[in-house]
Design a protein around this nucleic acid. Structure first.
Lengths: 252, 252
DNA sequence: TGTAGAGGTTGACGCTACGTCAAGGTCAAG
DNA sequence: CTTGACCTTGACGTAGCGTCAACCTCTACA
């Protein structure tokens, strides 16, 4: 007693194309093939097929299923490692969802400022997780509310100021002057003043390690291409870092 | 001021291949292309690229990103619908994880758990020999994995359904109606539908020997006291057999 | 000025698990 | 013998690039 390809497809709730595919990849061969090429499947083949479909529903890939079926490998082990993968996926999804939510909220909060303001290198929500990880939730919350508390005009001003600073750094770096030149040191001073406008920046108050903060930031500009991009790439960021280091040594 | 393909790739944290791909699909064209074919990108292009990469990190597909960039679609709208998709994915993942966990737990579980859960009137292992004889050596394993793949809740539902079916058969048999009565035939139909829920049952096969299978099962219910017990003993099983035979004759 | 070496280009295949034609052979029924 | 349902084997398409392969181009150095 056996069935044609369409018949078991219906019985098992799949398609004939899938069965041909399984045949092609060697996952499930027909129990019998007639001289005309027609595939026929019997009971045990149906059972195998149902096992395959079950494992597939659990999310296993065809090669993994083949391993389980052919090599008699431990199903529990296969499922366990698969479970880890699922957990990682879930985690990634959760963070992505949080990220998207945050982005939507921010965009809704200020409607059209997003197109220009969010994506031009001054997006703080983009790095929410990272900021929280590095400096804590409070730091992010403070930064966020600081930014949101600004009017559109203020935001624009801040953005312009930031952009001009970045542009001037790039120009200076490209001009070939040295990081300890007066020009570069002027920029460094401006940069520090700019930083003080951001909440969370350590002050000269007791316990505030301004020097370490500024030099550390410089390193980050070089190390992180996302920051480096603001200063014309790695070479520009290197210039900024060096200038900041010199400035910090002298004045902080 | 512009950058070569490798340079912006580094600045933006991606690869030159990706940039060529974006060029190919029309997502991001170089700001300038020299006669030798070399691609060069300027500041605005970098900004666009960063927008693209952000949206991509949020999980949007390239076509969706293209829509957003072309202003054909509101970004919030795009992200919102994407969020729905993400939520569905998360839900699917969660259920898949629960399913896999359940399967693993049950498979890890020692005989005690299984004995308790399965030997209370719905023991499919009880029919191991018959199943193997009819369907092959792997049949029991498949049926077993089918059963263990169910969540506790699903198992309970299955058990309830099975129990109710048996109880209804007993009631019908005791009421004295004939096997070809509407009531009995309704039960037969339910019975066949119930059988469809068990993997290995050829009930959906148009050309398969469904009729023989069902009538054969009926005979088995009568012949085997372990089966008969589910239908109130031999007399009850006889009633079931007769009703099934009539039903199979008419509808299968 | 010849030549290495770094970096650029355009194909084109690979990956997942099949869906979806396309062109043509097979089979049961009227 | 025709019709229509069902079967076969290719072969392309999918998402987003990674990864050769084969072949320019530019810069730097002996």
């Amino acid at each position: 007693m056996d069935w044609s390809i369409q018949e078991i497809a219906k019985i098992a709730g799949t398609t004939s194309r899938t069965l041909r595919h399984y045949d092609d990849v060697g996952l499930l061969k027909p129990s019998r093939t007639r001289h005309n090429g027609y595939r026929y499947y019997d009971g045990p083949a149906l059972v195998q097929l149902q096992r395959i479909l079950l494992l597939r529903e659990l999310g296993l890939g065809l090669p993994a299923i083949a391993e389980v079926l052919n090599r008699e490998t431990d199903t529990v082990k296969a499922l366990s490692s698969h479970l880890e993968w699922l957990a990682r996926e879930q985690d990634r999804l959760a963070r992505q969802i949080a990220s998207v939510r945050q982005t939507i909220d921010t965009m809704k909060g200020d409607g059209k400022y997003m197109a220009q303001d969010m994506f031009d290198g001054f997006d703080h929500t983009q790095y929410k997780d990272e900021v929280e990880e590095r400096w804590g939730k409070d730091a992010y919350a403070a930064s966020d509310s600081w930014w949101r508390g600004m009017s559109a005009e203020e935001k624009q001003q801040w953005k312009d100021r930031s952009q001009k600073l970045g542009a001037d750094w790039i120009t200076a770096a490209a001009s070939g002057v040295s990081p300890d030149s007066a020009e570069a040191q002027d920029l460094a001073q401006r940069h520090v003043a700019w930083l003080r406008g951001i909440p969370g920046t350590p002050t000269a108050a007791p316990g505030g390690d301004v020097k370490g903060y500024v030099t550390g930031l410089g390193e980050m500009y070089v190390a992180d291409p996302r920051f480096a991009a603001n200063y014309g790439g790695e070479s520009g960021a290197t210039f900024v870092r060096d200038a900041l280091r010199v400035y910090a040594e002298k004045h902080l």
